[in-house]
Design a protein around this nucleic acid. Structure first.
Lengths: 155, 155
DNA sequence: CTGAGACATCAAGTTGACTTCAGGTCAAGC
DNA sequence: GCTTGACCTGAAGTCAACTTGATGTCTCAG
């Protein structure tokens, strides 16, 4: 099925779920790379799929592409990354996720008390002002991005 | 301390934590409104603070401003909103939050197994491809926004 | 009554993560 | 060897949620 073990951008797009334009964008940012045919077209090694899986996973837990790039910089250039390499990169995510879950649970508990009292009072209500959780992010912190939101009429 | 019970944009900004520019922006979107002095300056009733608290809370659980506007449309125009009105608006957030927490926990559990096996394999690994959780949001779904992220070197 | 500082509008800029477009090139099956 | 669909580049557009800047007006303490 695969010609010579190298994948076209279209094949990578289909297998990874990233659009070709996103793949080119990632290449510009240095997140992935590809060899070229004599005619200038990209040819990806199969290993790019794992790299892209890492990128998606990192995005899923909320890393920016800058942060992803920084994380990927920890991969060895010389040899093919091993499972252990990937695992090492991923390990810190666990605590990050734990923190995020804790934040949301605190928010939920605050919501319970707020609904109970109907308060929603500024700077007093843990729900409208979870300063301790989103500390430093200033006003306007959002806990979840649009992509995970269901439309309002959905529940 | 307060002159005639009406607040200037600066006062509202300070009490609500929203920047004056954000308040004007919200007004353009119809999320809040204000009366004007003879000279054209905004004067807000005290009740705007509760409205803003609602907006912040909604933003905190991930609603877009469009969704906030839609939610606020459920408030009575005629009478001053009661605690029950606010509580009714907030009640659906509970299930939304529960869903979000469940999603993150599934992600964390997937991460555990992924770290165990080092796989991160595309479309097979629950962690890099939590399709059931972020369903319909397509590739690129992010679970948390930057505001809740800690810098990579933070843990 | 005056001056400093808060406020007004409107347009344009910002950020992140891409997508879209215009205009041209490559690869491969028949 | 040709056609068709995939691919190329670079620039510009998009979206959300604001912010910033330019330029001018209002308010009110002294």
């Amino acid at each position: 099925m695969d010609t010579h073990d190298l994948l076209t951008v279209g094949a990578v797009a289909e297998r990874s779920g990233f659009a070709p334009s996103a793949l080119r964008y990632y290449e510009r940012l240095g997140l992935v790379s590809a060899s070229r045919t004599s005619g200038g077209q990209r040819r990806y090694p199969r290993s790019v799929l794992r790299r892209l899986a890492f990128i998606r996973a990192a995005r899923n837990i909320g890393l920016s592409l800058d942060e992803v790039a920084e994380a990927l910089a920890g991969l060895p250039e010389a040899r093919t990354p091993t499972k252990a390499d990937w695992a090492r990169l991923s390990r810190t995510w666990r605590s990050r996720l734990d923190g995020q879950i804790a934040g949301l649970m605190a928010l939920r508990d605050g919501l319970d008390s707020c609904i109970g009292c109907g308060c929603l009072s500024l700077r007093r209500c843990a729900f409208s002002n979870p300063a301790d959780l989103a500390a430093g992010s200033g006003p306007g912190a959002a806990f979840l991005p649009r992509s995970l939101r269901r439309p309002v009429d959905d529940n």
